[in-house]
Amino acid sequence: MLEIDNLTHVYGPGSPNEHHAIDGLKLSVAAGELLCVVGPSGCGKSTLLRSIAGLIKPTGGEIRVDGKLVRQTPDNLAVVFQDYSRSLFPWMSVADNVALPLRRRGMDKRQRREAAQEALESVGLAEAGRKYPFQLSGGMQQRVAIARALAYRPSLMLMDEPFGSVDAQTREDLEDLVLKVRGHHRMTIVLITHDIDESVYVGDRVVVLSKAPAHVVGDLKVDLPAPRDQITTREHPDFVRLRGEVGRLVRGVDAPAATA
């Protein structure tokens, strides 16, 4: 579904502010897989995502989606941006924000409205459709952005720290929502998070990136029993082991084999 080969990106090459964000990153994601990407702050995660979405042209390497080289935005893609509040259109009601991309789906007005309402309900914002983004809290805005991506039913969904601004309870609900939607609609999802527990809980696989310039330092398969459950999954011995492994990879510490 998604193949990234030797991806390299340098911001401002040749300038005094030259910054190597990504260096020789290799990654492939199977169709229907939910891949979590974790890595230290500023390592290049958002850069990776924007490259996959065709929003920036990486300075080196290749990205293929469904075998097709990414030059522009791939078809059937939805992105939940890290800057969720800036990605909502302030002049439109919440419902219109969610419904707008559905124009690309050839739906008529009524279908769009219904699909938008359904998506808003799924993120717990059934009553917010007529409001404007500025009338919502940060966490609610973030859920609108998620609803907009879900309503679109993309085949590839890129999510950049999508649950950063919501409370713990809502966060768990949204994690389960993503798992459920993925199950029903067979999407491929790349989800960036800085929450190690979250990456293990929702991911089929967790990829750990290094400090800048980013490359893959760890790639772990998450073999936890399905369906996942917020309580029992997190108690599972494999969960505990995996979160430890991911944590050590993120911090760049070796396994505690040598400790006495």
Binding site: T73, V79, R86, P101, R104
Partner: peptide
């Protein structure tokens, strides 16, 4: 970010 959002949906 607003224009990129719309572009990312294929507009």
């Amino acid at each position: 970010v607003a224009t990129e959002t719309l572009r990312s949906f294929g507009f």
